[in-house]
Design a protein around this nucleic acid. Structure first.
Lengths: 228, 228
DNA sequence: TCGGCAATGCAAGTCGCCTTGCGATATCCC
DNA sequence: GGGATATCGCAAGGCGACTTGCATTGCCGA
């Protein structure tokens, strides 16, 4: 125990009856807020545990005891922060809805929080953290799926189309573009994606030649292994 | 050529006259090989720089001097290793080609090397490492694009479709599934994806109701800014 | 063949993530 | 108000990534 040494730092006059040692929910909030702030200001690498703890006026140990790992903390902070980041449009037109949704997603990816969230979602996940992560993204996709269901009710999409697949096919490329290619998500790209999803690759008013393309139902046969 | 590796550290008596201070290309090969081996055996976390260096019979410092970063090393090792992992099918049918390509990609994602490559490709990249990473993935996509171009020559796809967008829309979901959702890439999923890309969401032989869906050519117009 | 240069080995050290044991205190509950 | 108990602050330390200065040695060309 520190007998003398008077560990109180340089507070010459003020001895505020200040809250000092925050705990429980109050402490969690302070840490979560500090995390998002540091993240937004300096990106992923600025959000070290030491920096976060200091900014929140909390000791590093408390962070680890409450969240276990830095990644868990960042993940929770971001999930909490971005919970209402992507509102669901409802314009009455699927094409337009999708366009707006993807544009909003693209914009989010351009903020510091976007890539941070993706990086964390993707970091080698342990069994425990994985379930939380999967649930988070599954929820995001489920929300987007509602667009498709509304469109289906309006007869805007073919009845045999799978909404889940469509949602993944639409949102994944935006993430991949940002993460893998480092290319921006332009309005033109969003349009191309939506058009592709809506209209498909195959010629619509088929070229007079009979269907060289396999009938969809038949294409389902699965050719065994791909040679090496 | 590889003289038996002798991983036993306990060689109490032997002081081989050939300490083998490998350098240059020989050293790089040894390190690259050791990296892939450790990666395949113990996953990402087993491939520490210390472990790799030891397995390659090289000093840690050399690794850092040659690659700079652990991630750069892993990235190069994997890129080198997987260079011919995804052969381009050429069956004469786009639907079938895509099916095989995506199936092979899905299979790759189920090996330890697949996720490792993705994780590394996505890790916060510095300006230098980013260009290499982007180029790698751009090359992968360019290869796949060839499928689309062949199909275009055969008249299998509408002339106004963008091959690049299609490739991204097809491959990205597989990556996202693995990384974000933690869900497996099943043959059924591959089929659904390919079907979606080929046929689109919009009803084909339009429901008797007149074309509620915008004509493909006209749909390309871009509705101004998306609100908020 | 031999010297010189560059690449490697080695040691010591920094930094960020994370753990642990212990003392100090806020907060609930009686 | 006065414990009990869960929490928090603190210090020390381990581990892995990464750096740096210096001693060694492989190797290429003169």
């Amino acid at each position: 125990m520190p007998q003398d040494e008077t560990p109180q730092n340089e507070t010459p006059q003020l001895k505020p009856a200040a809250p000092l040692r925050r705990r429980g929910a109050a402490m969690r909030r302070a840490v979560l807020d500090a995390t998002v702030r540091l993240l937004a200001e300096g990106g992923l690498e600025a959000a070290t545990v030491a920096a976060i703890a200091a900014a929140a006026g909390v000791h590093e140990t408390s962070v680890y005891r409450n969240w276990g790992t830095r990644e868990d903390l960042l993940r929770e902070a971001l999930a909490d922060y971005t919970d209402q980041a992507l509102p669901l449009p409802d314009t009455g037109s699927l094409r337009e809805d999708l366009h707006q949704l993807l544009t909003a997603l693209g914009a989010f990816l351009d903020t510091p929080e976007g890539p941070a969230l993706l990086h964390l979602s993707i970091a080698p996940a342990t069994a425990e953290t994985r379930s939380g992560r999967d649930a988070y993204w599954a929820d995001r996709l489920a929300r987007a799926e509602r667009l498709l269901h509304r469109a289906a009710a309006r007869g805007e999409i073919r009845p045999d189309a799978d909404p889940r697949t469509a949602v993944e096919a639409l949102m994944s490329p935006l993430l991949a573009r940002h993460l893998l290619l480092g290319e921006p998500v332009t309005p033109a790209y969003v349009t191309a994606l939506v058009d592709l999803a809506m209209d498909g690759l195959a010629p619509r008013t088929a070229p007079r030649t009979d269907s060289r393309t396999l009938p969809a139902a038949d294409a389902r046969r699965y050719r065994g292994g791909v040679s090496r």
